[in-house]
């Protein structure tokens, strides 16, 4: 049966993550090092090793995900563990640092790690919130189907606009040729277009309708109906693109920064052992 990654197997990995964090915290509280707590004590080295191990294991998820058909555990189980153990890294790595920060490669690694975790938290939020919104917005139509319906509506609009004058023909033509769905990252994420040619055509036709000659009334009513339909469709398509972009965008931060983190982590370890 379907089970979200958050509740996977009765919160198994949440429990593991909490246990790990509690044990690390207890050690930290009862540990009395010679100087103030830092990564150089036995506990510091211990927590550092656990943290580094966790980072490498968390990044291994990218490999496991691409090993289609391989591995014993389901990818869902991996992701559930990835999320909770990734969060426990906040505690483990912070305690490892002993709250000592500065302008150096060590803190850089820490900041990168927290950014990766932060983007991951957004990812979890997106995965929980957006799928249902996307289904509701789609109402059974895929983006491709919506595009098809739009081009059908465009054809009907052009047919309906015949004989209604150049002014209206220009608006309708712009609506059918210049309306764009998606585009740059920013446009995708924004989900609306304030200067949408379809919307302008709808408003334009609507305002001109009052002044139009009486024998155009029937055709204009039909045109307004068609444009309103397309305007709704365009809105839904943009929303679809927006949700898809939100579901994907965080990965463009999460993944490259985790590689940067890996590099910084290696620099941190090398620096500790050679230059301390």
């Amino acid at each position: 049966m379907n089970q979200s990654i958050l509740v996977y197997r009765g919160f198994r990995y949440l429990k593991v993550a909490i246990a790990l964090s509690l044990i690390a915290s207890l050690f930290y509280v009862f540990h009395q090092p010679m100087q103030r707590p830092n990564g150089g004590t036995w506990l510091g080295y211990g927590l550092g090793s656990i943290g580094a191990g966790l980072i490498v294991w968390l990044m291994w998820f990218g490999i496991r995900k691409r090993r289609y058909g391989g591995g014993r555990a389901m990818v869902e189980e991996w992701l559930s563990a990835h999320v909770y153990l990734g969060l426990s890294l906040i505690v483990v790595a912070t305690l490892h640092s002993g709250f000592k920060f500065g302008w150096n490669v060590h803190t850089l690694a820490y900041v990168l790690m927290m950014t990766v975790i932060g983007s991951g938290i957004f990812g979890v939020y997106a995965y929980v919130r957006y799928p249902t919104l996307m289904t509701e917005n789609q109402r059974g139509a895929t983006l491709e189907m919506m595009m098809g319906q739009m081009s059908d509506l465009d054809r009907e609009c052009r047919a309906a606009a015949m004989g209604l004058g150049d002014d209206i023909a220009r608006l309708v033509l712009a609506a059918s040729q210049e309306t764009c769905i998606g585009g740059s990252v920013w446009r995708q994420l924004r989900g609306t277009d304030p200067s949408c040619p379809t919307h302008s055509a709808l408003v334009g036709v609507h305002t001109r309708a009052a002044a139009a000659p009486g024998d155009h009334a029937v055709a204009l009513r039909r045109l307004v109906t068609l444009l309103q339909r397309k305007d709704d469709l365009v809105g839904r398509a943009r929303r679809d693109v927006q949700i898809k972009a939100l579901l994907d965008i965080w990965l463009y931060i999460h993944v490259p920064l985790s590689f940067a983190l890996l590099a910084a982590l290696i620099a941190h370890i090398v620096a500790v052992f050679f230059y301390w």
Partner: peptide, 27 residues
């Protein structure tokens, strides 16, 4: 393939499942 259907096993969020008709009522 050992382990069963790759589609279900590679779904990261557990959205994909395989169902037998007997299980419809439960779903």
């Amino acid at each position: 393939i050992a382990g069963g259907p790759a589609c279900v096993r590679s779904c990261p969020t557990g959205a994909a499942i395989r169902v037998k008709p007997e299980e419809f009522l439960v779903i």
